[in-house]
């Protein structure tokens, strides 16, 4: 099966460390500076699922851009194990907030893009991509152009593109935001199973507290812009997680706590 070919021992995965990163942008007038990240530190252990939640516009996407080398931080470092990868690119697998599919490529060829960029073109890749399209309910769309897909289907294609990327650490920027509640719950369950099978290192951005608690080992809560880490939370529930965990009193208490925390950080502005 496809998943087995890409599960090395968990120890092969690198640890991702973000160390006291400050980042910002010049304002549109050019003479000022808009601080976006204020001393953000976090760690994704090998095979760990880490979520980031924070208010809209706080700097979550910017944080992923710093990790991916698209934005150069003013201070701080990004490390993969002991290797400093600050401001260098191509070390991570990435699913952007907009699907960002190539409109002139079929769904299948979009899914294969990350591998192609890494110089991998094999018939096994094609078979693997087709298997995944089937498993995500996209069979029959392999040869369709992205414009003929719904927003949620396009997100799934972008997700598969990241999943098939050869880099071991995955950065996912709100992968399920364009899905309705039902499909979303389905995709969450699906991602949970998949991740528990493959144990890849994941850094996952979401607005959805329940989603973060359901999927993650660790949750980081960011403040309003400029973003600081206001809370780091170890999620205590065992793996594999059952769907009923959301009804667990401890789960409900944690959800309440995070909801209040987010509400106060949003009021503070």
């Amino acid at each position: 099966m496809s998943a087995e070919t890409r599960v090395p021992s968990a120890t092969a995965d690198p640890r991702l460390t973000v160390e006291a990163v400050d980042a910002g942008f010049p304002t549109s007038t050019g003479d000022h500076h808009l601080p976006v990240l204020d001393g953000v530190s976090l760690t994704v252990e090998p095979g760990e699922f880490v979520s980031i939640i924070g208010p809209s516009g706080s700097g979550k996407s910017t944080l992923l851009h710093v990790i991916g080398g698209l934005v150069t931080p003013e201070h701080g470092r990004v490390l993969l194990d002991d290797e400093d990868i600050t401001a260098t690119r191509g070390h991570i697998s990435y699913m952007p907030q907009q699907p960002a599919l190539l409109p002139w490529r079929s769904v299948l060829r979009n899914v294969l893009l990350a591998r192609e960029l890494a110089g991998i073109r094999t018939s096994e890749s094609v078979q693997e991509a087709r298997d995944w399209l089937t498993r995500t309910g996209l069979d029959g769309f392999a040869d369709a152009y992205p414009r003929t897909l719904s927003g949620g289907m396009q997100q799934r294609v972008a997700f598969l593109r990241a999943l098939l990327a050869p880099q071991r650490v995955m950065l996912l920027d709100e992968p399920f935001s364009a899905l309705d509640a039902l499909t979303r719950a389905g995709m969450q369950r699906w991602l949970l199973r998949l991740w528990e099978e493959t144990r890849r290192s994941v850094l996952f951005i979401t607005h959805n507290i329940e989603e973060a608690l359901l999927l993650s080992d660790t949750v980081y809560v960011l403040s309003e812009r400029p973003a600081r880490v206001v809370r780091r939370l170890d999620v205590p529930f065992t793996r594999p997680r059952r769907d009923e965990v959301v009804d667990d009193p401890a789960f409900i208490a944690l959800r309440r706590e995070l909801t209040d925390l987010l509400a106060t950080t949003s009021e503070a502005r």
Binding site: H65, G68, R89, G90, P96, L102, L117, A165
Partner: peptide
Amino acid sequence: DRAIADYLRMSGSSHWTIFRVL
């Protein structure tokens, strides 16, 4: 498209690859 260009850059694409692919 900016979003696609950002994706390609994050994935380690060179200028030339972005020119060719996008």
